[in-house]
Write a protein that binds this DNA or RNA. Structure first.
Lengths: 188, 188
DNA sequence: CGCGCGATTGAGTAATTTCAAATCTAGTGG
DNA sequence: CCACTAGATTTGAAATTACTCAATCGCGCG
């Protein structure tokens, strides 16, 4: 069941009793989205943080010229949101839509705060989640600063071997910050 | 005093009593470094997280060709470490050294965990700190993906107006991911 | 069969880097 | 106060990388 998947995920970091997990789970809602459906749209409020149970979503920013830049490609066991919108209550600037049919367990900002306030372990869990998120983001900044297109692509293939079968090269290019034509020309 | 500065900083997010703050403060050690001195060196363990009381440090990665890429320029009221080394115990891959004489309040990984375990409010504080850190990192990723050199420089000047007087353009260039020659040629 | 979409290829252009040299500037010692 | 030096910044010209726009290819599916 979907909740088991969340439970396994949480248990990689903390150990919850059945009651503790059920308490935590009660703050989440289960959601289903179809391929190409939007989960978050720029301009809307984005008060939910989502845990991917099944599927893949892409989180992206579209600039004034209509060019799209992908911030995250989130598959099973990843969390996503528009962090700025989620944490500040401001309108979303990102779009999130589904690359495959997707199921999530989602939690509102208020519920997340209530959950953290009521469960020491879950606050610890989310703190640790953010530290790993920080490490990943910093790694990506470093890659963008120091690696050329070919090296970034190689590193990406290494880091996410299971993703590249499920995602078009056009999207990978947009994640890496190059055009699809350039990605296509890379010799590796 | 240095601790007052930390206290003010913490109070932007949570409210601590005198005793609570003194308890928290007891986990930190005060440190002084001179300009050009290393605080963290690649290869060493980096078990401390640092809060800047005074001064500026740069956190950077040096690749096999000797090129340096700046991950962070941390001034007063910023936190820095080698996040990967700090959280995993692995040897540091980053160098951190002082651009000015610098004073920090520093906390070890173990002490940070003890502090969080003993103080609900401080665990909340660090969780919130990481969420804002995530937002900032994501903003930087987006800037690297979507903006050219000139736009990144403009955005940086806007975002950190007080920093550019204290930092050489060579370092700013390295932070922005361009050569100093390119930065020098930008018309803005 | 033919449409539609993603991937590739080609040619010209724009942005950035590289390497080298010239210029500027702040601090030091005479 | 001035000359001098080290470091930072700027400028120049050629080379490289990546982008743009356009055309072609490949393939699954109705």
């Amino acid at each position: 069941m979907e909740l088991d998947f969340l439970r396994t995920h949480i248990h990689q970091i903390i150990c919850l009793t059945d009651e503790e997990f059920e308490h935590a789970a009660s703050f989440f809602t289960r959601r289903k989205y179809k391929k190409h459906q939007y989960i978050i749209q720029a301009g809307d409020v984005a008060s939910q943080e989502h845990f991917v149970v099944k599927g893949i979503v892409k989180s992206s920013y579209t600039d004034h010229e209509g060019k799209e830049y992908i911030l995250q490609l989130a598959m099973e066991e990843w969390w996503f949101s528009d962090p700025n919108a989620f944490n500040t209550g401001m309108p979303a600037t990102l779009n999130v839509d589904c690359i495959e049919d997707t199921e999530t367990l989602s939690i509102s900002f208020d519920n997340k705060e209530k959950l953290c306030a009521s469960s020491r372990k879950m606050e610890y869990f989310f703190r640790k989640k953010y530290t790993t998120g920080n490490m990943a983001l910093q790694k990506r900044v470093l890659a963008l600063l120091s690696n050329n297109a070919s090296e970034r692509y190689k590193q990406w293939l290494n880091q996410y071997p299971s993703l590249h079968k499920r995602i078009s090269k056009t999207l990978i290019a947009s994640y890496l910050g190059v055009t699809r034509e350039t990605l296509s020309r890379l010799s590796l």
